[in-house]
Simulated assay, not measured.
Amino acid sequence: MKTILKMYEHLDWANQRILETLQSMEGENQEANRLFSHILFAEKVWITRLQGLDSSRLPIWSSKVDIEVCANLVIQNKKSLTTFLTNISNTDLDKLISYSNSKGQEFKNSVRDILTHVALHGQYHRGQINSRLRADGSEPVNIDYITFVR
């Protein structure tokens, strides 16, 4: 549980750093915003599933997203994840969660595997954002875990 909690502290820290960078840019980087919103929408979907609720009507991707939508999602997701993580124990990590994906296919995964997926999924797409920023002539955001723990 200690490792998962640290991963989620890093997730929030990395989301905050990406958000601040995207908010401070002159002109909008639509692809970076789209990728960032995907991270946040996916977090919301998985949080909803972990809560045992239906996620089928929640978006995963959006073609055009205002950065303020992302800012609100960062706050909402942090609050929801903090509440969820505060209320689970080590034994809850092996509990199976049943859910349907966006195509209606049913799956079961453990809470531990879902939480690990969400943290890794976000880091993957934050890397894509950094690649897009560099391609557009901006400095990538240092979101390395080791930088976070230093």
Score class of each variant (00 low, 15 high):
Gly127His: 04
Leu133Asp: 12
Asn90Val: 11
Asp94Cys: 05
Arg49Cys: 03
Gln23Arg: 13
Leu81Arg: 04
His10Phe: 15
Asn101Phe: 08
Gly127Thr: 07
Ser80Ile: 00
Ser63Lys: 15
Pro140Leu: 15
Ile129Thr: 01
Gln128Asp: 14
Ile143Glu: 12
Gly104Cys: 08
Ala119Leu: 03
Tyr99Met: 12
Gly104Asn: 09
Val65Lys: 10
Ser80Pro: 02
Ile114Val: 10
Thr147Gln: 14
Lys44Val: 01
Thr21Ile: 11
Lys108Thr: 12
Gln128Thr: 11
Arg112Tyr: 09
Cys70Val: 09
Leu5Pro: 00
Asn142Val: 12
Val111Asn: 05
Asn109Ala: 09
Val69Lys: 11
Thr48Trp: 03
Ile129Asp: 14
Lys44Asn: 13
Lys64Ala: 12
Asn29Lys: 05
Phe84Gly: 11
Lys2Cys: 07
Asp12Ile: 08
Ser56Gln: 04
Met1Arg: 07
Ile146His: 14
Lys108Gly: 02
Thr82Tyr: 06
Asn72Ser: 09
Ser102Gln: 06
Phe84Glu: 03
Pro59Asp: 03
Ser63Pro: 09
Lys78Gly: 07
Phe107Trp: 12
Thr86Gln: 15
Ser37Lys: 15
Arg57Val: 00
Gln51Pro: 03
Arg134Trp: 02
Phe148Gly: 06
Ser63Ala: 15
Leu85Tyr: 03
Ala42Ile: 06
Ala32Lys: 05
Ser100Val: 07
Met1His: 00
Ser100Phe: 00
Met1Ala: 06
Gly127Met: 11
Ser89Cys: 11
Asn72Ile: 09
Ile143Cys: 14
Gln51His: 04
Asn15Ser: 08
Ser80Phe: 01
Val141Gln: 15
Thr3Ser: 12
Gly27Ser: 14
His121Ile: 01
Ile60Met: 06
Glu139Tyr: 13
Asn130Arg: 14
Tyr99Asn: 07
Lys6Tyr: 05
Leu85Lys: 03
Glu31Asn: 08
Glu68Met: 10
Glu106Met: 14
Ser131Gln: 08
Ile146Asn: 07
Ile4Val: 11
Trp13Leu: 09
Glu31Tyr: 08
Leu115Val: 07
Arg150Phe: 15
Thr48Lys: 01
Ala32Gln: 03
Leu58Val: 01
Thr116Glu: 03
Lys78His: 10
Leu58Pro: 00
Asp54Phe: 01
Lys103Gly: 06
His38Gly: 03
Val111Asp: 05
Asp66Cys: 04
Glu20Pro: 01
Asn90Ala: 15
Trp46Arg: 00
Leu58His: 00
Trp61Lys: 02
Thr3Ile: 14
Pro140Ile: 12
Tyr99Cys: 11
Thr116Ile: 11
Ser138Cys: 15
Asp113Cys: 06
Met1Ser: 07
Thr3Gln: 10
His10Leu: 07
Ile39Asn: 04
Ser102Phe: 12
Glu20Cys: 09
Tyr8Asp: 04
Ser24Gln: 12
Lys95Glu: 10
Tyr99Gln: 09
Leu115His: 04
Asn101Arg: 05
Ser37Asn: 14
Val65Asp: 03
Glu31Asp: 04
Asn101Ile: 13
Trp46Gln: 02
Asn130Lys: 14
Ala42His: 02
Lys103Ile: 07
Lys2Ser: 10
Trp46Glu: 01
Tyr145Phe: 15
Asn77Pro: 02
Leu53Glu: 08
Val111Ile: 14
Ile47Glu: 02
Gln23Pro: 05
Gln51Glu: 07
Asp94Val: 08
Gly52Arg: 01
Asp54Lys: 00
Ser63Asn: 14
